[in-house]
Design a protein around this nucleic acid. Structure first.
Lengths: 190, 190
DNA sequence: TATTAATCTAAGCGTTTGCTTAGATAAGCA
DNA sequence: TGCTTATCTAAGCAAACGCTTAGATTAATA
């Protein structure tokens, strides 16, 4: 028969993901991927088709990387407290290995916007929707909330996560802590 | 003597800014700038040095474009009400000419992060700081707020603006309105 | 051990990138 | 009107881009 692969695709995607996370899609070249993934361009293209294919798989890997903190939220049954914890967990998550990377999905939305390829767009949207539904679950755990207000609060929390992602890239710890604390213990009212 | 310029630099920068706003820095090529600005590459380079120079001037132009709604906030003396109005004004601003562009400064922060050239970074940071100081001014207009809480609230509002910018690129009107309303009329509390 | 076929290396494909330059053009002063 | 000189056009530079391909290598089967 024939020769066997000298790498596991999940291993090299993990490395590709970290590169995309640091640099974004456009600013990451196939030559850079080659070095970081530790395999030749031929192998990259035979395994993933093209650069876009590597990226889509990286996004999927990112989402399962996020599963650890996602599951903490999913398994919590303490309503808002669990959501607040998720905000702090997420902030820690963005700082692992290297600071100022933010969230890969949010970064991608910002970089490509509505110009993302359909299959990629699906992955990005699923991310936001899943987040929102997790928020809704936990919001419902605190009784005496109407369906209507839960929906509004979930929309608010989802967009707030986008702010946290972008904020984590340029703001200091105090500013970010003030941000999270103010979300869950607000003092503003018009 | 010699020939005179056939274009005003402020005019062509305005057009460059719109292109950068739609596409981001990397995804905007000098050939695209050439067409959009209506002048030859030679003129671009003799007027602005290089692509980066065009971009820095575009960021400055963007900031003065934002002056109209910035001044509404600056001249307001109704505290939080003025800040809330600014959030809505900003949302309208991001939709002018074309939807889903977000805020050029926020987009740039997301694209380049801490890899931005120093002179560009200065412009980006000035933007955030100025925003924060405007918020502080208005927060102080509502009496019985301590200096300490004003600082926290300003940090919160600044990061919230980042969320609004990114949100404006992917979320619908309802989600965005829920977001703003919840900021200024919060129902969450842990 | 010889055969087979997938995986490897490395060179190279055509395009596009940011930027430069030689020569044509034209505007103001003598 | 003729000279001067900055601005224009358009061609072209090296480097980097995403991607392909020919040929060497290697592991599993017969």
């Amino acid at each position: 028969m024939a020769r066997t692969k000298q790498y596991k695709e999940e291993d090299v995607i993990q490395k590709a993901m970290n590169l995309f996370w640091r640099n974004g899609f456009e600013a990451t070249s196939v030559r850079m991927l080659e070095k970081e993934m530790g395999i030749n361009q031929f192998s990259i293209y035979s395994s993933f088709g093209n650069k876009h294919g590597v990226f889509v798989e990286s996004i999927k890997a990112y989402k399962s990387e996020l599963n650890s903190i996602r599951n903490i939220l999913k398994n919590s049954n303490n309503g808002l407290v669990g959501i607040k914890q998720f905000f702090y967990d997420f902030l820690e998550f963005t700082k692992e290995n290297e600071e100022g990377k933010g969230c890969l999905v949010c970064n991608t939305v910002s970089e490509l916007g509505n110009k993302a390829e359909p299959d990629l767009m699906v992955e990005l949207m699923k991310f936001t929707e899943e987040l929102k539904s997790l928020f809704i679950n936990n919001l419902k755990q605190d009784k005496n909330r109407s369906q209507e207000i839960v929906e509004k609060e979930a929309n608010y929390l989802t967009t707030s996560m986008l702010g946290l992602s972008l904020g984590s890239r340029i703001q200091n710890e105090t500013e970010l802590e003030d941000y999270i604390e103010m979300i869950f213990n607000p003092s503003l009212r018009v």
